[in-house]
């Protein structure tokens, strides 16, 4: 048997099947994670809708000022951070390391600002008397669902901020490459997309008129 045949038969290194999706396995894993996370958020939002539908006294506490203005500002910051992450990814693909790192760090700053505004929003509601299982306005489940959904999203943002910081430092040192920057940019865009469903479902359907 030839050497090539032996290598094929033994599944040796260097001879591997082409990826069915023509993307690196790390990127495929990220896509699969995103899909599973989308279903998790979907289930939470459906559960939220279920509880809201089944509660005749669901509160509508979000006033235009400060809540909705704050949410609009948070949306602007998060969508803008997606744009800066796109610029960073493109710079990394063009091997412009310094520019890519600068734009990743700008994205991280956007994420931190978003998290701070989110915590300010939470503290405002807590000061008004919202707790996990009680609030001054109506259905006691409001706090539990609100904090669960926005909390999970906030955890994703904070996780993203940490990972992007690690990636930028690793990319600077040569530990990570442009593929890693691209793969984690997918995660960051996903966090942005989830927010586009959280805002209407959790905030805008409960505005105080």
């Amino acid at each position: 048997m030839s050497e090539a045949g032996l290598t094929l038969g033994g599944h040796g290194p260097g001879i591997t099947e082409e990826s069915p999706f023509a993307i690196p396995s790390k990127k495929l894993v990220m896509w699969l994670f995103i899909i599973s996370d989308a279903v998790t958020f979907g289930a939470l939002l459906f559960a939220y809708g279920y509880v809201k539908n089944a509660s005749p006294d669901w509160p509508e506490p979000f006033r235009f000022s400060p809540s909705i203005i704050n949410v609009m500002l948070m949306t602007f910051i998060l969508v803008t951070s997606s744009l800066t992450m796109l610029v960073a990814t493109r710079a990394a693909k063009e091997a412009e390391k310094a520019r890519a790192i600068r734009w990743i760090l700008i994205t991280v700053a956007g994420g931190i600002l978003f998290a701070l505004l989110h915590i300010r929003e939470w503290l405002g509601l807590i000061r008004e008397g919202v707790r996990l299982f009680q609030n001054p306005w109506g259905s006691p489940m409001f706090g539990a669902t609100f904090f669960a959904i926005t909390g999970l999203h906030l955890a994703h943002v904070i996780g993203g901020v940490v990972v992007l910081t690690v990636i930028s430092l690793g990319y600077k040192r040569g530990r990570y490459n442009s593929d890693d920057v691209e793969i984690w940019s997918l995660y960051w865009h996903f966090v942005d997309l989830v927010w586009m469903f959280v805002v209407p479902m959790v905030y805008l359907l409960n505005v105080s008129r």
Partner: peptide
Amino acid sequence: MLAVALVQAGFGVMYFMHLRDERRNL
């Protein structure tokens, strides 16, 4: 609201996440 959010998500997935540039079977 959900219809608008779906359009936003579609834009994000196709253009920001570049899914439109990937192979169709993905």
